[in-house]
Simulated scan of single mutants.
Amino acid sequence: MKPSLSDVAVEAAIAALEITAITPVEKIEKLIDIAQQVQNQPQSSQQLEGAVHLYCQALELCEEGLYPLLEARALVGLGAALRSFPAGLADPLIEAQAAYQKALPLLQEHAEPAEIAAAEMNLGLVFQALAPFGLAKLPEALQSYQRALRVFTGERYPKEHAIVQNNIAIAYLSIPRFHQQEDPQPELAVQAFEQALKYISPSNHPTEYALLQNNLGNALQYSAAAQSTAGCRRALTAYDEALKVRSRRDTPLDYAHTLANKANVLFNLPDHDDRPEAGNLANLSQAKALYEEAQTIFQQQGLPKQAGVVAVALADVEQALGQQISE
């Protein structure tokens, strides 16, 4: 059996420890560099375990207090690797939290602000992932994100600013809602998405732009704005902006998700805002076409679960169409 790239890289890194011609600093840097390369490969548990092993080897070489910045960077890399383990596992996330929290004081003393902010952002993601287990609270994630935003301003770091704002919005949407008409979380999420979109464009940051527009449309569907046709129109505009970037050829899954999201809005939107009693035959027909295309893509991509969800929505649309045609 041919060894994987991660196996070869791990063995090479460990072998480097035996080379006496390089300094301890060079050994640590080499371990961290190879760990990052392993981690950036298409991820599997085996590769991530290899990266974790390399970061731990680097930390063993970081004598207490002797190489604080390298120790911090190894801890941050370790946290990122642990955070990337398959969803549903709490233990790696707990270890990732500990790694980031140990790294941050070292970074605050020895690193540049952007490096500190990146660690804060990633710690926020860990808190957010731990919240469903009852092992962290979403306000802890929001606090980490806000600290990151002190550095990642829209003017200086538009891409990073957009990513953090997206994370903030998703955190707001993840907070349980007890009074649907009163809870402000969806509106706060909408504000975060709109704030991020002030600083990026489809030409300069197409991936982030499409993600934010798609998620903005979703947030508008959850917000009080969804109760009005104006709010629904805003959501449609956001999805159309996302579809200027997402395409069936280049990003089929993202494209299919946005199609289905747009169809969800059209399902309940009247054809004429000033005459809702006239029905929505045209919008239902458009929703049907969007659902059909999304379903086909999910089937082609081997995602039966997603295809099944769309199939249920498609059946509802076809039923609604039949009712309106027969009236």
Rank of each mutant, 00 (worst) to 15 (best):
F127H: 15
A129I: 03
A129S: 15
A129Q: 15
L130G: 06
A131P: 10
P132G: 11
P132S: 11
P132T: 10
G134D: 07
G134M: 04
L135G: 01
L138V: 12
L138N: 07
L138F: 06
P139I: 09
P139K: 08
A141F: 08
A141R: 06
L142Y: 02
S144A: 14
Y145V: 00
Y145W: 08
Y145Q: 05
Q146N: 12
R147P: 01
R147A: 11
R147S: 10
L149E: 01
R150M: 08
F152V: 01
T153F: 07
G154N: 03
E155K: 06
E155T: 08
Y157M: 06
P158G: 06
P158N: 01
K159E: 10
H161A: 11
I163N: 00
V164G: 00
V164L: 00
V164N: 00
V164D: 00
N166G: 12
N166Q: 14
N167P: 02
I168C: 15
I168V: 14
A169C: 05
A169P: 04
I170Q: 15
A171C: 15
Y172R: 07
L173N: 11
L173M: 15
S174W: 06
S174Q: 14
I175C: 11
F178E: 14
H179A: 06
H179Q: 09
H179M: 04
Q181T: 02
Q181K: 10
D183A: 04
Q185F: 12
P186H: 09
P186N: 10
P186R: 07
P186W: 11
E187W: 01
L188T: 04
A189Q: 06
A192M: 00
F193Y: 15
F193D: 05
Q195R: 09
Q195A: 15
Q195T: 13
A196R: 00
L197D: 02
L197W: 04
K198R: 14
K198E: 13
I200F: 00
I200L: 05
P202F: 08
P202W: 11
S203A: 09
N204R: 11
H205T: 12
H205W: 12
P206V: 09
P206E: 02
E208A: 14
Y209I: 07
A210Y: 05
L211R: 07
L212R: 04
L212S: 07
N214W: 02
N214Y: 08
N214F: 04
N215A: 08
L216K: 03
L216S: 02
A219C: 08
A219T: 07
A219N: 07
L220E: 07
Q221G: 14
Q221V: 03
A224E: 12
Q227G: 09
Q227F: 10
T229E: 13
T229Q: 13
A230W: 04
G231L: 14
C232T: 06
R233K: 12
R234P: 01
R234G: 00
R234K: 15
L236P: 01
T237F: 12
T237H: 14
A242R: 10
L243W: 08
L243P: 03
V245Q: 01
S247V: 09
